[in-house]
Nucleic acid binder design. Structure first.
Lengths: 136, 136
DNA sequence: CTTGACCTTCTAGTAACTAGAAGGTTTATT
DNA sequence: AATAAACCTTCTAGTTACTAGAAGGTCAAG
C-alpha cells in the first residue's frame, strides 16, 4: 500500500503520516524500489489508534507512550490508567479555565446594550473600571 | 519609565511587551537617547487592558480590534458586543469538545482496573475494539 | 511521448510567546 | 578611573502539531 491508500483507510492525511514519521511517532516505513513508502494493514491500525488517541486530546508525545504500551504485552494497565488520569486532569483544568472565561464574558455581554452608543461594560471591564472583574 | 518598570506595573513581561510591539499590537515606543524604550502611565493602562483581554481568551488579533474600539470615541457598543459574542461561541465550542473528551476518558478510566495486568479498556478502545467509541 | 495521478524532499507559515546569546548603557561603589 | 550590577538592546531559535506550497521523480494509460 502506498501512503495515499493508507491515508484514505486510516483517515490520517498523507502529510500527517510523513510528519508522524519525522517526529518518530511511527517507525520509518519500508520503501518500494521507487522510493515510495510502503505500508501494510497493521500500519493502518496503528494510525487509527493514533487518530483516536489524538481525538481524546492526548499530545503526540503521550500518544507515543500509549502506543508503546499498546504494543507491550507485558504492560500493566496501571500505567495506561495513570497516563490517562494525568491527561484527564489537564483536560479538566482547561475546561475550568474556559468556563471561567465564559462566565465572565457572558456576564459582560449581557450588560452590553449592543447599540450605536459607545458606552460598553465589556470595554469598561477590560479597562479595569473595577466593575465585574476578569475572573479571579 | 523603562520597559522593566512598565512590565512590573502592568504585569506583562518585558519580553512580551517587545513582542506585542513587534507584531503591531501596540505602537513602537519612543526611545531615550540610550536607545531604551520609554513609556508613560497610559502605556501601563493599555498593557493592563491587553492583559485582561488575553485573560478572557481573546486572540492577540481580537485584542487589537478591542483596543481600537476602546480608543475610538465614536465606537458602537454593538461592535464590541458582536466581537465578544463571536469569541464566546469559540469558547463554548472548545468547552464542548473538551467535555466530550473528558466524558469518554472518564468512562474508559473507570473501566480500567489499573493493576499489573495488561488488559485495559482504554487501549482496547483506542485500538478500535468497537467498545465505547471515542465520542461521536 | 505526454498527461495525470501519484509520490518524494524541503522550506516556511501558523499562535503567542519564551529562552538564551552577545553586547550596549547606566548607576553605584571601590 | 575601573569595575560590577542591573538594566537595556537585537536576533535566533524553540515550543505544538500540523499544513501549504514548491520543485521534481515515478508509473500506468492513451
Amino acid at each position: 500500500m502506498q501512503i495515499g491508500a493508507v491515508a484514505r483507510k486510516s483517515g490520517v492525511p498523507a502529510k500527517t503520516i510523513r510528519y508522524y514519521e519525522s517526529v518518530g511517532l511511527i517507525a520509518a516505513a519500508r520503501r518500494e524500489a521507487s522510493g515510495y513508502r510502503s505500508y501494510g494493514d497493521p500500519d493502518v491500525e496503528t494510525l487509527r489508534f493514533i487518530q483516536r488517541a489524538r481525538g481524546l486530546g492526548f499530545s503526540v508525545r503521550q500518544v507515543g507512550d500509549l502506543l508503546a504500551l499498546w504494543q507491550d504485552r507485558a504492560r500493566h494497565s496501571a500505567q495506561v490508567k495513570a497516563l490517562s488520569i494525568e491527561h484527564l486532569a489537564e483536560i479538566e483544568a482547561k475546561i475550568a479555565a474556559l468556563q471561567g472565561m465564559r462566565d465572565t464574558l457572558e456576564h459582560l455581554i449581557e450588560g452590553c446594550q449592543g447599540d450605536d452608543r459607545p458606552e460598553c461594560p465589556i470595554l469598561a471591564d477590560l479597562a479595569g473600571s473595577s466593575g465585574a472583574e476578569t475572573v479571579k
